[in-house]
Amino acid sequence: MKPIVVIVAFFVLFALHQDTWNWSDSTLWFGFLPAGLGYHAAYSVVVSIFWLLVSRLAWPSRVEQWAEEGSDSPH
């Protein structure tokens, strides 16, 4: 996956955080979960799935290679 795809997807997620349409909604999802809280709990799960996809498809493995090949550390 190209970095630009990750960056665009990240900013889509970023924009979805500002859920102004839920601002005054106090509906209880499943009878107990306030809408503003339920939305953001679901959002947290979606964010984790996003990072799972990034870790599978766009992991910076070159960084690791660079760190290993030039290690001159006494520590």
Binding site: F10, L13, F14, H17, H40, A41, Y43, S44, V47, S48, W51, V54, P60, V63, E64, W66, A67, E68, G70, S71, D72, S73
Partner: peptide
Amino acid sequence: ASWSGLIHSAVFFAVGIRLWAVGKR
């Protein structure tokens, strides 16, 4: 909480890994 979930992971991914690499090298 949900801002932290998005931003913390982003910082670990975008900055943490690179600083780890520089630190190790």
